[in-house]
């Protein structure tokens, strides 16, 4: 099977399944709340509806507002290309490593935050302000966690890290690795706007982060942004899954390996979805000014991870 075909396939796979994952999380949450809930396929329907609605744009907004959805989704898609989801090693490993992924995330945040400010609405500004705050505070944790992973693998290349974990499965159980996982998990929560950092289903403007920024969007723009956000969640979760529990990921390009990879990935994601849903049911949203405490905690975890990696190396 052509290597390039696999690259494309991965992206299509990710893009296609991303709304489903969100739907799954929502469905599990509904069940946990003793509700029937919408079926897991609901996000696809929402996208379909949004694509067929008109878009209303504020008269104060500039081209930034219209361009941002494309920029955000492009950068998120680029991440989808770079993250190993099904196969390692990959051709695209050389294009970017884990740092590139992190900075692409920042690129998306940058555009989205600008778009939030563009129409001049107070909500948008508030959302942007909070979003960049959270993004900035999550940065050190991400970098430190990456560092600790890179220490183990000798590279910041995602493929190399996953491959290293595959070669020596026991590294996964080292304290450094586990702590780094915890740290990155918190970052993922923060970056993807899940509870307790942000409530994806809130209706109160004053408690919003991500939602506040896109409050002004409608129609296809909203669809793109929502999809990009879901994509981000999917990519983040599969990254977590593959970095720390790489079993099942394909190392050859045979159809069998690939299908096995798909299956294991889906299982891992489902497990993570359950974890997230349970957690979101369990905890309430934090006050905005307590979010830094959470992120600091994650930073400490990451630092501990790196220290133990150094010491136990």
């Amino acid at each position: 099977m052509s290597a390039w075909f696999v690259e494309i396939f991965q992206v299509v796979f990710v893009v296609a399944l991303a709304p489903g994952l969100v739907g799954l999380i929502r469905w599990i949450k509904a069940r946990l709340q003793s509700r029937l809930g919408a079926p897991p396929g609901q996000p696809y329907r929402e996208l379909g509806k949004l694509f067929h609605k008109e878009a209303v744009v504020s008269k104060n907004a500039s081209w930034i507002f219209r361009f941002a959805p494309y920029a955000v989704s492009a950068s998120t898609l680029a991440i989808a290309f770079l993250v190993p989801v099904l196969v390692v090693p990959r051709r695209l490993d050389m294009v970017g490593d884990l740092f590139v992924v992190v900075y692409l995330l920042l690129l998306g945040t940058f555009w989205l935050a600008l778009a939030g400010l563009d129409p001049g609405s107070a909500f948008g500004g508030m959302g942007s302000s909070r979003e960049v705050t959270v993004a900035a505070l999550a940065e050190p944790t991400t970098a430190t966690a990456i560092f600790s992973l890179a220490l183990g693998a000798g590279s910041t290349n995602l493929g190399a890290i996953v491959a290293a974990a595959l070669n020596d499965p026991w590294t996964v159980l080292t304290p450094g690795h586990l702590l780094a996982f915890a740290a990155l998990f918190i970052v993922a929560i923060a970056e993807t706007g899940r509870l307790p950092v942000d409530n994806p289903s809130t209706h109160l403007e004053l408690t919003m982060i991500h939602e506040a920024m896109i409050l002004e969007y409608s129609g296809r723009y909203l669809a793109l942004l929502e999809w990009a956000a879901w994509l981000k969640l999917f990519v983040f979760l599969s990254l977590l899954a593959n970095l720390f529990f790489p079993w099942g990921i394909a190392t050859t390009l045979t159809p069998g390996a690939l299908s096995w990879a798909i299956v294991t990935l889906l299982v891992k994601l489902a497990l993570l979805a359950v974890v997230i849903a349970v957690m979101e049911t369990r905890v309430a949203k934090l006050r905005l000014f307590r979010v830094p405490e959470l992120l600091t905690a994650s930073f400490v975890l990451a630092l501990l991870a790196i220290t133990s990696s150094f010491l136990l190396r």
């Binding site: 694509f51 609605k53 008109e54 209303v56 008269k59």
Partner: peptide, 15 residues
């Protein structure tokens, strides 16, 4: 996918 390409310009939403 044939997305709706209509765009209407309006006021900024401010409740």
């Amino acid at each position: 996918i044939g997305a709706n390409r209509r765009t209407r310009v309006g006021d900024t939403w401010g409740c």
